[in-house]
Simulated assay, not measured.
Amino acid sequence: MRCQFLSVYRGLVLVISIYFILSGVPAFAAESVVLKYRIFRESVSVEELSTFAQTGKLSTSLRVNLALARQNPQAIRQYLTEPVKINPVILDKVLNSRIGNVILDQLTQVIHTRSRKADKQALRAALVVSASKDRQITLIEVIQNYPTPEIEVEGDRLESAYRQLRRLQGNLQDIFGF
C-alpha cells in the first residue's frame, strides 16, 4: 500500500513539476505551426491557430491555406477543440510504459518537430501539461504546450491524432474506471 502511494505521489510531483516548468517559461512553448497537407506546407502562428480554434474566425492566411489544401475549416476546428477527459497522473504513467511508447509513436506521425528528434519526449510533456490544467486534453492545447518554438502538424492526419486520443481515453476508462 505504501509503495503504491509513493508511486502515485511521484507521478503527481512529476506532472506538477512539468506543468510549472513549461508553463512558467514562455520560450519553451510553440510559437509557430507548420501545417502540412501532402506536398503543401505553410507556417502559421500558434496564436492565429488558437484564435481560429477558440472563435471559429479564420485569418486571411489560414483561410487561404486551408482552401489550397482543400480542408474543411469546421472539421479542423472540431479536431482541435474537442476535449478528451483524462487523469494526468494515470496519463503520465501510461505514456512512460511500453504501450505509451506505441501511442506516442503513432501520435508523433502527426505532431512532431522538423528534425524529428526527441518527438516522443516533447509530445509526452505537451500531453501531460495539457491534461494537468483541467484533466482534459485538446489538440490545440497540445500544440500550445509543445516545448519547442516550431511544431509540424500533418494536417491531413489530424483526425487520426484526435481518434488516437479518444481511444486512449476509452482504454484508460475501461482499465481504471476514470
Rank of each mutant, 00 (worst) to 15 (best):
R166P: 05
L66R: 02
L165W: 00
R135P: 08
L49G: 09
G11E: 08
K133M: 09
T113S: 11
N96Q: 15
A67Y: 08
R77C: 02
R41K: 14
R116Y: 05
V89G: 02
Q164E: 14
T138P: 15
I111G: 02
R98S: 11
N171F: 10
T108K: 04
F20N: 15
Q4F: 06
Y146V: 11
I39R: 10
I103L: 07
Q74A: 07
S132V: 07
P83F: 00
Q169P: 15
K120Y: 00
T148D: 11
G56T: 05
S45K: 02
C3D: 12
S97C: 09
E154H: 02
N72L: 00
N145I: 11
L22T: 14
I137M: 11
I175F: 03
Q71C: 06
N65I: 13
I140C: 08
R114W: 00
D156K: 01
V84M: 02
Y19K: 13
E154M: 06
D119V: 09
R2H: 07
P149T: 12
I137D: 12
T113R: 03
R77I: 01
Q169G: 14
A67R: 14
G100V: 12
S43L: 07
D105T: 10
F5E: 15
R63K: 14
G11V: 08
G177Y: 00
S61R: 08
I143G: 05
E31H: 09
R38E: 15
R135W: 09
A75P: 01
T108P: 01
Q106K: 13
K93C: 06
E159P: 12
K36M: 08
I143T: 06
I151L: 14
V13H: 01
V34K: 09
D134Y: 00
M1I: 11
R10G: 07
D119E: 10
R98C: 01
I21C: 04
F40G: 06
D119P: 05
F40K: 09
E159T: 13
Y162A: 08
I175W: 04
Y79T: 00
S115D: 15
D92L: 09
L80V: 10
I137F: 04
G100Y: 04
S43W: 03
K36D: 03
G24A: 09
V46H: 01
D92Y: 09
R166T: 09
I143K: 00
R77E: 03
V94K: 00
S43K: 15
F178M: 14
A29P: 01
P147Y: 00
A53D: 07
I76L: 09
S43I: 10
V110H: 05
L14I: 11
D92W: 03
Q4P: 04
G170W: 02
L68P: 08
Q169T: 15
Q136S: 15
R77L: 01
P147H: 00
L158F: 04
L49E: 10
P147N: 07
F5R: 15
K117G: 00
L14C: 10
A118S: 13
I90T: 14
Q164C: 13
V89M: 02
R167I: 11
E159L: 13
V110C: 08
S59Y: 03
G155I: 11
L127D: 06
K120D: 03
V142C: 05
V142I: 12
A67I: 07
F20P: 04
C3G: 10
L22C: 13
A67H: 10
Y19V: 06
V153M: 02
Q78N: 12
R41P: 08
R10S: 13
V44K: 07
K57A: 03
L104C: 04
I18S: 09
D92T: 08
